[in-house]
Amino acid sequence: MPAPMLPSFMALLGLGLSAAPPPSPPSASAVLHAQCRTHAAEPTRPWALAHGMDLDGKAFRARDGRAASDAIVAGFLRRDAPDAGGTARYFFDAFTPDGTPVEPHPALQVKTFLLAGYPRSQAFPTAWGKVTLGELVGSLQRDFRPALAASPDGAWALDALSHALKPGDSFVNGAGETVRMDAVMDTALATLESANAELLSGMQAGLPQVPKNKHGIYAHPCGGLHFFQAVAGWARFPAVRKAWGPRLDAQVDVLVYRLGSEARQYEAALTAAPAYRVQVLVQMVKFYGHFLEALGRYRDETGWKPTPAQARAVAEAKVALEHATQRLEATGAFRDTEALSRKQPQLALDLVGDACHAARGWDLWASAKAR
């Protein structure tokens, strides 16, 4: 005899009890990591590959299975053949002929390889044979001009050289100038101080914010956060830390002050310009991610111990990054990065590069060291 049918409301109740709950949305950390590892792995995009290495270091691989560093060097390194008895010059173009970014900032790639932990003896494949990281550093030194220490675009070269050399070191560049690293990095600190002068005044005056006006530090790529990283990393040497002392401490304080100053301006922009919601949210992810990365690197490289107030700022930056990422995810921008690249290529690039920096910043403060 067939079983009696349940009343419809009982059947619905049974379905409700047996159905699985809807899946939880991915965490902000998962979104950032997936965005970076998915979209930075294309072997024809060397700038993106370098950003994948910013997150995963030597372990990051191109989609074709090669180490990202090998794909970058094999596909995009250029060489000026040496004269008889001379030394070859190695370099990356800023962009490919079709506009794909390779090294829009001088020494981006060499800096990436050094910070990933490759030794100077590391050999990379090229069409003409092997080239070592030491040879790439040698070409960077020949091309380096001291004026880059005072340039907003100098951050990557300074970061590379400061991780290849130590206090007291010097080298002769291609113009025959003797370049002393102590003088270069002292100039870089003075450049950072000058760029941050308006923010320092605002902080000392107790102003809630200082407008982002494309002057000073805001004339630097990524708001000068790469320049801060390059300068602050030099302080891993005790003699430098002692010599710079309160001057560098003040720059850390300014960076922490920027957190509240910029957060207010981003939230105001979201309200005032809803048509630019995606662009503003990308800027928020950029700033909060670079902020966490900068202070995480500073802690790990120098042994810096944040004060309770600075530790609270880091915690606030993590919350702000999480919320900005969730709001950006809700717009669909992360899911539609490839489509966006056809309409707004620079914004699509930012979605990838900034996700990599933000994911790394998150990881630096999510580990056991973040205490």
Rank of each mutant, 00 (worst) to 15 (best):
M1A: 15
P4N: 07
F9P: 08
G14P: 06
S18G: 15
S18C: 15
A20W: 12
A20H: 15
P22N: 11
P22T: 08
P23A: 13
S27Q: 10
S27E: 06
A40L: 00
E42V: 15
T44M: 10
T44S: 03
H51C: 03
D54P: 09
D56T: 08
D56C: 10
R61N: 09
D64F: 08
D64N: 13
G65P: 05
G65N: 07
A68K: 02
I72F: 03
L77D: 01
D80V: 10
P82V: 05
P82S: 07
G86P: 00
G86T: 11
R89K: 14
Y90H: 14
F92P: 04
F92R: 06
F92A: 06
F92N: 06
A94N: 07
D98S: 13
A107I: 06
L108G: 02
V110L: 10
L114R: 08
A116M: 07
Y118H: 10
P119D: 05
S121H: 12
A127N: 08
V131C: 06
T132E: 02
L136V: 09
L140D: 06
R142A: 15
R142H: 11
D143H: 13
A157K: 09
P167S: 04
D169H: 08
V172F: 12
V172E: 15
G176H: 06
D182H: 06
M185C: 09
D186C: 14
L192W: 07
A195T: 07
N196R: 14
Q204M: 13
Q209N: 08
V210P: 02
V210A: 06
H215P: 01
A219S: 15
H220P: 03
G224E: 06
G224N: 04
F228L: 14
G233M: 02
W234M: 04
A235G: 13
P238G: 03
K242T: 14
R247W: 08
R247P: 10
L248V: 14
Q251H: 14
Y257V: 09
R258C: 08
R258M: 13
S261Y: 06
E262T: 11
A263H: 13
E267Y: 08
A269H: 02
T271P: 03
A272T: 02
P274L: 02
P274A: 01
Y276L: 15
Y276D: 15
Q279S: 12
V280F: 01
V282K: 03
V282I: 14
F287T: 07
G289V: 09
L292P: 04
E293L: 11
R297M: 11
T302N: 05
P306G: 11
T307M: 10
P308N: 04
A309K: 09
A315S: 12
A315N: 07
K318C: 09
A333I: 02
F334T: 01
D336S: 02
Q344T: 03
Q346C: 04
L349K: 03
G353W: 01
D354Q: 14
C356N: 00
A359Q: 00
R360G: 07
D363L: 09
A366E: 15
